[in-house]
Design a protein around this nucleic acid. Structure first.
Lengths: 144, 144
DNA sequence: TATTGTTATACTCTATAACTATA
DNA sequence: TATAGTTATAGAGTATAACAATA
């Protein structure tokens, strides 16, 4: 275990970020799968859960081209989790929002992801856990 | 900005992890794209950079079915970045390794991802940065 | 003219099931 | 029999370019 101990000691912030990202991606994909959805579909669901959102804004949130989003929305809509509604102020636009089922699935996925990640974070002492959340928050916010 | 300040205060470890993971995914996808590759192709490249690896082990590293890997390896091989070699000890198996070009591209991608993530981490004071890396290292290692 | 969203097209990614060759 | 890898097939994700409708 010498090698592993050393790899901890010398892991850079960047390497740490990459590895934690893969971990989270796995959890996310796992949870999505258990609900018969793809990770992308769950991401979409998350983005429109709070309030109805237009296609352009969703595309920007997910880092996709608008044209890529059309099909994604089509497929999730076909499953009855989201709906397209006319924007009353702009007849070009539509607003994508969750259905009742979609809201439930969204909550369930979020809960399961959070539970599994919290469990993962329990490997840290409580103080470190809090400290970690605060550090990440700063990182993420500085990038907005 | 009240809302944002509050969201920092109340962000859980799990939410923090999810958000940082998305950030990293973006950086990774960006870098891959600049090299005319997909994120998956760069991941594959990373996995076989150190030493030649068999298909089954690669599939497990990437969390893919073997059958999904065949095509991925085909496409990256077609670009001349990796090669399949016979395993001299087991004639069923092959060992996937990087070509010279592949090794160069792999190094470049790694360097660029690291640079961009380090730049991102520079939003933190040096002490916090180090602390963060150490926390993440513990998280990731506890999951191995 | 600029913007919102869709369509058409071409690849890439992925899983499941069935298969070949070797161990 | 079990394992390593491939093929066949089907569906999902994505980008680019061209388009329609509205602002």
């Amino acid at each position: 275990m010498e090698a592993r101990a050393e790899s901890i000691a010398t892991m850079s912030v960047a390497d740490a970020l990459v590895r934690v990202s893969h971990l989270v991606d796995r959890v996310f994909a796992d949870v999505a799968r258990q609900h018969g959805l793809t990770p992308q579909q769950v991401h979409l669901l998350c983005v429109v859960t709070e309030r109805p959102v237009g296609m352009t804004e969703i595309a920007s949130s997910l880092g996709l081209e608008k044209s890529s989003l059309t099909g994604l929305v089509d497929r999730v809509e076909r499953r009855g989790l989201i709906t397209r509604a006319r924007d009353s102020h702009d007849r070009r636009a539509c607003l994508v929002g969750v259905s009742d089922t979609g809201a439930r699935v969204s909550r369930e996925c979020h809960r399961e992801v959070v539970d599994r990640l919290e469990a993962l974070a329990d490997a840290l002492p409580p103080d470190d856990k809090e400290r970690f959340a605060s550090l990440v928050a700063h990182l993420v916010e500085s990038e907005r």
